[in-house]
Write a protein that binds this DNA or RNA. Structure first.
Length: 105
DNA sequence: CGCTTGACACCGT
DNA sequence: AACGGTGCCAAGC
């Protein structure tokens, strides 16, 4: 069930260009909220379609965070691989925000 | 309507 | 630097 909140999240993630990444915090700021977790929740609950590159959304620390999969991000490797394929340098499940962080504001 | 969960963030120790 | 506890918000039950 796509809620208005989720739609906003998807829309923002969809705006992230290839080779760039964004953080849950940045999205929260754009939405003018502090629902950092709710954002992640939206992505995991409904992978709204291939139009929403969830793998481009990472933690503010630069960590990959999670992906889907019951365990502690079993598919994180895939996410990491995807990012690398897009040209993002990942080291130890961490991304260089200083270079690849895309800001909406 | 209220409690629990969660792909988070921030502060203190 | 690493770990723990606390806060925020939305969705699910």
């Amino acid at each position: 069930m796509t809620t208005p909140f989720q739609e906003k999240v998807y829309l923002i993630v969809n705006k992230v260009p290839k080779g760039k990444v964004t953080t849950y915090k940045e999205i929260a700021i754009v939405l003018n909220t502090k629902a950092y977790q709710a954002i992640g929740q939206a992505l995991k609950k409904n992978v709204n379609a291939p139009i929403t590159p969830c793998h481009r959304v990472i933690r503010s620390d630069g960590n990959i965070g999670g992906y889907k999969g019951g365990k502690s991000g079993k598919y994180v490797s895939t996410k990491k691989g995807l990012l690398i394929s897009e040209g993002v340098v990942v080291e130890n499940n961490k991304i260089k925000l200083k270079k690849y962080l895309f800001k909406f504001y």
